[in-house]
Design a protein around this nucleic acid. Sequence first.
DNA 1: TGGGGGCATGAGAGGGCCTCATGGGCATCC
DNA 2: GGATGCCCATGAGGCCCTCTCATGCCCCCA
Lengths: 298, 298
Amino acid sequence: MGLNLTQLRAFVGVVDAGGFGAAAVELGVSQSAVSHAVAALERALGDVLLVRSTPVRSTVLGEAVLSHARAALAGADAVVDVAARHRATSGGTVRLAATPTVCQGLLPALLREWSERLPALQVRVFEGSGEETEAWLAGAAADAAIVADPPPDTVRGDGRGGALLVTDPFHALLPQDHPLAGEESVHVADLADDPLVLSPNGCERHIRTIHRLAGEEYTPAHRVRDLGTLLSMVQAGLGVSILPEVSRSVVPDDLVLVPVTPHHSRELVLCGPRDRPWLPAVRALVDSVAREHPGPPR
Amino acid sequence: MGLNLTQLRAFVGVVDAGGFGAAAVELGVSQSAVSHAVAALERALGDVLLVRSTPVRSTVLGEAVLSHARAALAGADAVVDVAARHRATSGGTVRLAATPTVCQGLLPALLREWSERLPALQVRVFEGSGEETEAWLAGAAADAAIVADPPPDTVRGDGRGGALLVTDPFHALLPQDHPLAGEESVHVADLADDPLVLSPNGCERHIRTIHRLAGEEYTPAHRVRDLGTLLSMVQAGLGVSILPEVSRSVVPDDLVLVPVTPHHSRELVLCGPRDRPWLPAVRALVDSVAREHPGPPR
DNA sequence: TGGGGGCATGAGAGGGCCTCATGGGCATCC
DNA sequence: GGATGCCCATGAGGCCCTCTCATGCCCCCA
């Protein structure tokens, strides 16, 4: 009763090969199979498609049907073709370098997304400072990285280039009971009296920029390596800090993030190495997130 | 191993319906069938197509495959659609009126062609004089006719209108031993000494035109009704005649057809009635022969 | 801690599709 | 005119696919 790709392939094959036997050779099946298939198709459609002569000719219905049959077969072939290409380019393991804030704030959702939407692709995360991630990527110890504010030519080239994951604004990190904790936003000058705790994970450059924009002096009171340490110190009332938005997920309940002015943000970009070809799988990762955020209308 | 329209339909259905169960309802099969089909498709393609969540989402591969799958299904649907339309419009019986010369010279090949290329269509031939065929068509005793030189608006409107079957030049019919039988062409003035035998089957108008073009007097010596009689009389040496090219197939070996000057020809056109809608089957006949002769480049 | 929605899975039946073998129509060639 | 070869149709038989039914697993929710 129902149509069949085998039947369509047999019909088109007979038209192209000029005969049932020739089509059978072409399709790698017996002549009988071709005959059965065409007969079944003709039964399903309710009329004859081919005139059994030498060479075989099409009936009027056969001619009318032929192009649609070709379209159907082309679509089916494209499906297997796309799948084959996908298997070849979207498998294997990608070593992804990222900073701690990214690893904690951004990566969980991304990894979950990737494991669902690119299940054949395994991502191994390497956490390091901003300098380390860039060094790993340059030194081929990593295949991709999430970097902040890369040179513009590497950002979302829409096919070539990396993918902008998120525009990540900076906030003041304050204890919940800090006088400014309830404000809509906080100017960096108003924090001048509080000791500034800093974790030099690649954000220091941006924090310096914020101070420069405000005309404030940049004098960090403490430098810690671990983000947990920073949080603990602010919790202990030893000072305040400035953190990017992606850190929000790891901020304890008794600390708050308040937008800081002058406004400043960094762009987090997923990209491959600058100086060597990208792994196909990295391209697949980039494309998958680029499709999520449609990007600017150019 | 091989793709399947059922599998593609299930996959697209799940994407459109937002779930396996909903797709099953949509497709009129069990939820289990949809699950099996999608699983088989994923096995065939070597990777997962759908993320089993609520609502179901596509993987990257699923998105890449979706449009091609839709194209394949659209092609297959178009095939059955075209076939259904063809069954509705290209079946039944057509009563076709034509003159004897056409019936003998032109129709055999046409009927054979039609029986092969439009096997669901039956053509019943009604043979009559030119006046009779036109009267039958006008009076709905025939559904179509092959007429000579109809008004220009009925000729091959390329979609609407009739189909030009052949441009049919006139020849002199001579006994093989006639002095002019070996000539390349014969001027009608050179036949003035021979008695002119005429069969008034609708060709008389053209023969009169040939004489008028030559400035010759038109004086037929004999008028017979049957073409066979005419041939016999010419064979018996009782005179000569003027016949159209399509008559060649019924001319005996001891008679010859020699192109006559002034050159003149008629156009034989297959068309439906002028004053009422055409049978769809008549349109199918016209289209089938119009496709044969590609027609002038406009 | 049940309950329900949603999909997967296994068993079994039915049908579709393939191959093998054979038959018939048609042309060519001695 | 009979033989031969080509080409397609047809019937039988077997395998595999696909469907349904029943049930299980998982997750979310109250």
